[in-house]
Computed example of a mutant assay.
Amino acid sequence: MELLVIRHGQSEADILEVHEGRADYHLTELGENQARKMASHVQEHFPPDIILASTLKRASRTAEILQEAIGCEISYFDELREFDNGVLAGLLRKEAAVKYPLPSGGRPAHIPIQDGESAIELRYRAEKIFQQIIYDFKETERIAIVSHGGLISNFLEAFLNLPVQAKFQFHTGDTGIHLLELKDDIRAVKFMNSLQHLKKGKLHC
């Protein structure tokens, strides 16, 4: 089984300089173009048998663009949504820094942000959906998973069997692609955060 893990394209929140998380913004025009380039690249090099996607607009639209290129089935999962950042969702970053400053030394992993989830809860959610995918789709050769930066980082930690409080963070650029393989008892990383598709031509916003 191969897992093609893909982040959504640029969203409106990137332009507005707000905390995104569970705030449900659309893709920008640039984000749509990024998604089309990603979809064309995936269709040519490693087309999936099925697409699984977050229900948030920026990811679901990216997944739809991929589906248009591939023509395969698509299923949506709330569990693939981004970190639930509670009161910060949609709030200007400057305003958030004043109204909800981080505790000295950072927020402990077990303590949720107000009206949101904790870092440990996010990791558990990523672990759960990872296990669900490899069980429910075990007969599928290649699966595309379209999600968000924070969830993807935790998903990769689950794939690599890293400790819950490991000090690792895996960056994923807009429409960045990771290719993972599970074969027998071996978990292999074929590549991470590939943005090769964005270098094939200039993007216009």
Rank of each mutant, 00 (worst) to 15 (best):
Val146Thr: 02
Val146Gly: 01
Val146Lys: 00
Val146Trp: 00
Val146Leu: 06
Val146Arg: 01
Val146Met: 07
Ser147Thr: 00
Ser147Asp: 01
His148Asp: 02
Gly149Met: 00
Gly150Val: 03
Gly150Pro: 02
Gly150Thr: 02
Leu151Lys: 04
Leu151Trp: 01
Leu151Ile: 05
Leu151Tyr: 03
Leu151Pro: 03
Ile152Gln: 03
Ser153Ala: 13
Ser153Pro: 08
Ser153Arg: 06
Ser153Leu: 11
Ser153Ile: 09
Asn154Ala: 12
Asn154Cys: 12
Asn154Leu: 02
Phe155Thr: 05
Phe155Ile: 08
Phe155Glu: 03
Phe155Ala: 03
Phe155Trp: 06
Phe155His: 02
Leu156Gly: 09
Leu156Trp: 11
Glu157Trp: 04
Glu157Asn: 14
Ala158Tyr: 04
Phe159Glu: 06
Phe159Thr: 11
Phe159Trp: 07
Phe159Lys: 04
Leu160Gly: 08
Leu160Arg: 15
Leu160Ile: 07
Leu160Tyr: 12
Asn161Gln: 12
Asn161Leu: 15
Asn161Cys: 11
Asn161Asp: 14
Asn161Lys: 14
Leu162Asn: 10
Leu162Lys: 14
Pro163Ile: 12
Pro163Trp: 10
Pro163Ser: 05
Val164Thr: 15
Val164Trp: 08
Gln165Cys: 01
Gln165Ala: 07
Gln165Val: 12
Ala166Val: 12
Ala166Asp: 09
Ala166Ser: 14
Lys167Ser: 08
Lys167Glu: 05
Lys167His: 06
Lys167Gln: 08
Phe168Leu: 05
Phe168His: 11
Gln169Phe: 15
Gln169Gly: 07
Gln169Arg: 10
Phe170Ala: 07
Phe170Gly: 09
His171Ala: 06
His171Phe: 09
His171Val: 09
His171Gly: 05
His171Tyr: 08
His171Cys: 00
Thr172Pro: 01
Thr172Ser: 11
Thr172Arg: 00
Asp174Trp: 03
Asp174Val: 02
Asp174Ala: 07
Asp174Tyr: 09
Asp174Ser: 12
Thr175Ser: 02
Thr175Met: 04
Thr175Pro: 05
Gly176Leu: 00
Ile177Asp: 01
Ile177His: 02
Ile177Pro: 10
Ile177Gln: 04
Ile177Gly: 04
Ile177Met: 10
His178Asp: 12
His178Lys: 03
His178Glu: 01
Leu179Asn: 13
Leu179Gln: 14
Leu179Ile: 06
Leu180Cys: 05
Leu180Tyr: 06
Leu180Glu: 04
Leu180Pro: 12
Leu180Lys: 07
Glu181Ile: 09
Glu181Met: 13
Glu181Val: 08
Glu181Phe: 06
Leu182Gln: 13
Leu182Tyr: 05
Lys183Glu: 13
Lys183Asn: 14
Lys183Val: 14
Asp185Met: 12
Asp185Asn: 15
Asp185Tyr: 13
Asp185Ser: 15
Asp185Cys: 14
Asp185Trp: 12
Ile186Gln: 15
Ile186Leu: 15
Ile186Lys: 15
Ile186Gly: 08
Arg187Met: 09
Arg187Asp: 06
Ala188Asp: 13
Ala188Ile: 13
Ala188Gln: 13
Val189Trp: 02
Val189Ala: 00
Val189Pro: 03
Lys190Ile: 08
Lys190Met: 02
Lys190Asp: 00
Phe191Arg: 00
Phe191Thr: 02
Phe191Leu: 04
Met192His: 11
Met192Pro: 00
